[in-house]
Amino acid sequence: MTHKYRSRLDTALEIILVPGMGLALYMAFIVAPREASMGDLQRIFYFHVAAAIAGMTAFAVNFAASLMYVIRKNRWWDHAALAAAEAGVVFMVMVLITGPIWAKPAWFIWWTWSPRLTSSLVLCLLYVAYLLIRNYIGDPDRKALVSAVFGIIAFVDAPLVWFSIRWWRDHHPGPMLETGGLDPSMRPALYICMAVFQVLMFYLLRRRFRLEGMRDQVESLYRQADLAS
């Protein structure tokens, strides 16, 4: 198995992403109307929500890949799981940064221990722990297996975390899409942001996945060279 540094799909994704990002910015800052009570501040919401959903998607990918690794023991799945965990943490950190930026002017506090916030933080910590384990196991086969086990645990834990802290009083604006609270004129911007962030997540995941594949290849080349000697 050889890994090409990049494929046509990567180029295609880049071609989508560059104007896509521009479009997302344009939609969020120009096209979407000014929110009545919060003003321009609300515009951060488009990125905040899009990043959160992209992060969750990445964690779901990590779960699926971890499960597949435990079943198949194929390194391919381990690389996918690692790439997904890293991408997920990046997006979750984005959520945790944009959140307080918005909360300070809106609620006059940086941080509140509301369920959504707390859950996001815990979720982020879980996957940081996932990445941490990987650092401290030498044998790659064991590293893959043990981190896959933890990946499964983390994802199973996520809904329990969420339900457990749910009855705490919540400041967080409810999910506006479900309740129809989001003005229809704002929706295109949100949808485009969400779509672009998903593509971005997928692109980062792919690149990271490739990198890990190449690392593996380097190792096996070393082994072959050693075998030949």
Binding site: G138, D139, P140, E219
Partner: peptide, 10 residues
């Protein structure tokens, strides 16, 4: 069996 880059059994 190899431990990372190091082959023990070939």
């Amino acid at each position: 069996k190899h431990f990372g880059r190091f082959p023990v059994l070939r």
